[in-house]
């Protein structure tokens, strides 16, 4: 009896998940992918803070949307105040170019990158420590961290995204 109940529950779950996946793909084709919500952004930041605390790092962490506009940001206790704008700038770059900010470092002086930085108010930071958030083949946002070594920053945001399943 229980086995049948469990089986039917599993079947229902599969149908629901499958259905919603199909629906979201259809929606994405019409309107673009589902945007990153504030609660998702805050979940990413909370996960990043947990990861940072476990490694004894003090970071600023920022989440931006697919356009590079800020959704949420937090500076951990005793993180340097100036790390905040670095975290935001790295996340903006990762979102706008749709690739990890580490990949942008070598092109930072190219005319396209300099122009893009001018167009966004000079706020981009082309250093390692931010990665894009991809959903349905679209960059829907990016998360960046600053305050440790740039490799630690990047490891931190990757761990955070893995923790929340993005």
């Amino acid at each position: 009896m229980n086995r049948i109940k469990n089986f039917s529950r599993a079947l229902l779950t599969i149908m629901l998940v499958g259905g919603s996946l199909g629906a979201s793909a259809e929606l994405a084709a019409q309107t673009g992918p589902q945007r990153l919500t504030l609660s998702e952004a805050q979940a990413i930041i909370a996960a990043a803070q947990r990861d940072a605390a476990s490694k004894n790092l003090r970071l600023s962490i920022a989440v931006v949307d697919g356009r590079g506009d800020l959704i949420a940001a937090t500076r951990m206790p005793n993180a340097r105040p100036t790390t905040m704008d670095t975290a935001i700038g790295k996340a903006m770059g990762a979102a706008i170019f749709g690739r990890p900010s580490a990949d942008l470092a070598e092109r930072a002086d190219s005319p396209l990158y300099r122009n893009m930085n001018e167009a966004t108010g000079g706020r981009l930071r082309f250093f390692q420590g931010a990665v894009p958030i991809v959903r349905g083949g679209y960059t829907v946002g990016a998360v960046g961290a600053s305050g440790a070594s740039s490799q630690d920053d990047e490891d931190n945001v990757r761990a955070a995204l893995a923790a929340v399943g993005l």
Partner: peptide, 15 residues
């Protein structure tokens, strides 16, 4: 000092 500690943009708020 005016340095940002935390910020949140609610869904639907303009950029």
């Amino acid at each position: 000092r005016g340095d940002l500690i935390a910020l949140a943009r609610m869904d639907g708020a303009r950029f």
